[in-house]
């Protein structure tokens, strides 16, 4: 189910009634009530705006109207949605919408790029919840749901859509030489580091450049480096996939999945340096990085 023109008008009407009622002279103006008033008034403004906006959209294509966020061009929507998000969603999804891995609450900033979802699908998830999961349906009005969609759009991880403009062919050979042993692109390559298919659409050029120049500055979960020494004296390097009080599961530097009982190990050191080598400008110039990124973008 998605928001329709009818829903929206109904929503805005409801909110106006509510605001009128609260603004009545008989109502005691506690601080809480005043605040409520403020919010409702904002809602009312938004709803009126959006009704107008939607009315315009309806003429351009009734069928598409349902998939479009009617508040898409209203900057206040994301702000109001942010307040709603912090009050209603942040306990599970985190104050920054990046999820809480220990309770399996997903990172919502990746929702569009990972699930390639559109706004109306996100709308449906917020309103109806996900059956069979802990994500419940919510009693938000449709306008509020669209505000949340606007907020999530505003914090969504985005990369580069414009052509990067480097030398794709040179990028391809650099990638094969320097990266493919550990990174996969469109099904080809290694698994020690993250799959880079479509990475330019998810991460900014700056972020990708930083990841190349200073890979240890910010190491993602499941790629944390470890060095351990087995009972037989073998030294093994790898990335930690999971761990409990008694055992550790890693991918070693030869990309084999291996598990060890901690009690059997001579040494277990959690390293600070990523297994990804630092690509200084001497190894890979800015222009060469640009070529590699262009190749990554072209392959997408």
């Amino acid at each position: 189910m998605v928001c329709s023109l009818w829903h929206l008008i109904r929503c805005s009407g409801f909110e106006v009634d509510q605001a009128d009622q609260l603004a009545g002279p008989k109502k005691k103006q506690t601080r809480a009530n005043r605040n409520k008033n403020k919010i409702i008034v904002t809602l009312q403004g938004l709803a009126t705006n959006s009704a107008l906006l939607l009315a315009l959209t309806v003429f351009s294509g009734l069928l598409q109207a349902q998939a479009i966020n009617p508040l898409e061009n209203d900057p206040r929507a994301a702000r109001a949605g942010g307040s709603l998000f912090r009050a209603q969603c942040a306990t599970c999804h985190g104050a920054d919408a990046r999820g809480i891995s220990t309770i399996d609450a997903p990172d919502l900033t990746l929702m569009w790029v990972q699930g390639s979802r559109n706004d109306s699908e996100v709308f449906t998830i917020i309103r109806d919840g996900i059956a069979g999961s802990i994500m419940p349906p919510h009693g938000f009005t449709d306008t509020e749901v669209w505000m949340l969609v606007s907020y999530l759009r505003s914090v969504a991880v985005t990369g580069t859509m414009e052509p990067i403009g480097g030398d794709v062919e040179r990028g391809a050979s650099l990638f094969a030489e320097q990266c493919a042993r550990c990174h996969r692109l469109d099904g080809v390559g290694g698994s020690l580091g993250p799959d880079l298919s479509g990475i330019t659409a998810r991460r900014s050029i700056d972020a990708l450049l930083n990841a190349l120049r200073e890979p240890s500055a910010n190491i993602a979960r499941r790629y944390k480096p470890v060095t351990l020494v087995t009972a037989s004296g073998e030294t093994v390097q790898g990335t930690i996939k999971s761990e409990d009080a008694f055992s550790i599961q890693i991918m070693d530097s030869e990309q084999a999945l291996r598990a060890f009982m901690k009690a059997d190990l001579r040494q277990l050191n959690k390293d600070v340096a990523s297994l990804m080598p630092e690509f200084s400008a001497a190894i890979l110039s800015d222009a060469e990085v640009n070529d590699v990124l262009s190749y990554l973008q072209a392959e997408r």
Partner: peptide, 22 residues
């Protein structure tokens, strides 16, 4: 990070957010 909540009956009312260092 406290934040004045909307105080709406039937809606959760934490009054702010918490950043947890994982």
């Amino acid at each position: 990070v406290p934040e004045e909540p909307a105080n709406t009956r039937g809606q959760s009312n934490f009054g702010g957010t918490v950043f947890i260092d994982a």
